[in-house]
Design a binder for these strands. Structure first.
Lengths: 115, 115
DNA sequence: CCATTATATGTCATATTCGACATAATGTCA
DNA sequence: TGACATTATGTCGAATATGACATATAATGG
């Protein structure tokens, strides 16, 4: 893993082992981070699509506004379980969640989104 | 949620809230359980495909044989993170993991598997 | 501008998940 | 059968994720 990439990841609150023993793991960790980035982005957009506030979603999933906020900024302390629970509570189907997990988020510009 | 279904889930070591306040959550919980069942089955078959022992996979992911065993029987104490880490360490790509998450496991009989 | 609402960030006690270990159960093969 | 490898199950202290809360920082619109 490149140092620059690791620094970026750690800056976002992620822990990355660097001992040689864990070199294979770093790929898995990076994958996990990217999955969570994708999940986070989708939780946010889905919630907004339903015009729900973080507070409301929090209540729905039995959590708190602060935790929902951490989810949406892909804080390192949020588990995949919470992402999945949230998406499910937003009406996202299992197969849709599978796609979110499997594909990188593409940040589109205003020209393509039409906004 | 039907009582029979909940009983089955709880028998497998899962905790399911039953207060009316959490009725919407139970669907999400069931989805999570099914995802983990799918992930568990795939960890097992992929590991066997590479002719790896639980002990060896455990070492690869910095865990223990007992935890790998729990993974493969879809024990309730195993997080999605660990499933993903394991699959990644077994060489499964992100898009493949997405498919595993998104689609129910189909248990095939001997006629179709050829065994 | 101010007031109000929504979102982000930090901390903390509690709950959950962790690897490790012992040991039981199952499988394998001679 | 017995010896050996592999997998399953239970438990425990340590590590991590949790909801709750306070509070900071936007964002909204009047």
């Amino acid at each position: 893993m490149k140092a620059s990439k690791q620094k970026k990841i750690e800056a976002a609150g992620w822990k990355v082992g660097s001992a040689s023993e864990f070199l294979e793991l770093s790929d898995a960790e990076e994958m996990l981070v990217n999955m969570k980035l994708s999940l986070a982005a989708n939780v946010k957009t889905m919630r907004q699509q339903v015009k729900m506030t973080q507070q409301e979603l929090a209540k729905r999933i039995g959590s708190s506004q602060s935790r929902v906020a951490k989810m949406e900024v892909a804080d390192g302390s949020v588990s995949m379980e919470l992402f999945v629970r949230s998406l499910a509570s937003l009406g996202v189907s299992r197969s849709q969640i599978g796609k979110i997990v499997g594909a990188r988020v593409v940040k589109r510009n205003r020209a393509t989104t039409g906004l």
